[in-house]
């Protein structure tokens, strides 16, 4: 079974938020909410500056605290891809998973259940890229099977310096940022 992950080149990303709006239309994300977002970190002092721009979302962790804390099994790991999903009609809206996520990737959908990035499972299970990856004008995102050594994501991770977000949380995130 594949293990889906994402590799994002922060050198190429311009932070245009196309990924954000593409996700919103693709997935009918309600107005005022987002499943993905842009984080910008600027280090240094004028004029000696460095900036990293990242497109962020649920990390579909290998060790997802949102799944383990869920009292009903609404938060679960699904195949193909070992992605973390929420089954709306099992969710009671206790919000424990929201508190448990170190990435603040989840939110309460106006309809009451907890919602978040699905890695566009409706697309990726058919071999398509997630909407955010497919729309990106800079081609800064790659999506694929981390367990397949021949995949683009695996190749990029082998050949480029990278980091993941909050590895100290121990959640084993599956989105990697090339630097």
């Amino acid at each position: 079974m594949p293990r889906f992950g994402m590799v994002i080149d922060t050198r190429k990303c311009v932070g245009c938020m196309d990924c954000v709006v593409a996700c919103q239309t693709e997935n009918d994300v309600p107005a005022g909410y987002c499943r993905d977002w842009i984080t910008t970190e600027v280090r240094g002092e004028f004029p000696a500056l460095k900036m990293e721009i990242r497109s962020e979302r649920c990390n579909h962790c290998d060790n997802p605290p949102c799944v383990s804390c869920c009292p009903t099994g609404a938060s679960h790991v699904a195949d193909p891809g070992r992605v973390v999903l929420v089954t709306a009609n099992k969710c009671i809206g206790c919000k424990a998973c929201i508190a448990a996520c170190p990435y603040d990737a989840r939110f309460v959908h106006p309809k009451g259940y907890v919602d978040k990035c699905t890695f566009c499972h409706h697309r990726t299970k058919d071999g398509l890229d997630p909407a955010c990856v497919a729309v990106c004008p800079t081609h800064c995102m790659a999506f694929g099977d981390l367990d397949d050594p021949a995949s683009t994501v695996s190749t990029l991770l082998r050949t480029r310096a990278h980091h993941a977000l909050l590895p100290e949380a121990g959640t084993k995130p599956r989105i990697f940022y090339l630097t």
Binding site: P71, T72, N89, I92, C94, G112, Y113
Partner: peptide, 26 residues
């Protein structure tokens, strides 16, 4: 009152999630 998806609260008692403190608590 805190639950956001109140009508589905019974879902808690259709399952036991051994990793979930909230399931234990329930």
């Amino acid at each position: 009152l805190d639950l956001a998806h109140k009508l589905y609260v019974w879902r808690v008692y259709l399952t036991f999630q051994p990793d979930s403190p909230m399931s234990w608590g329930s």
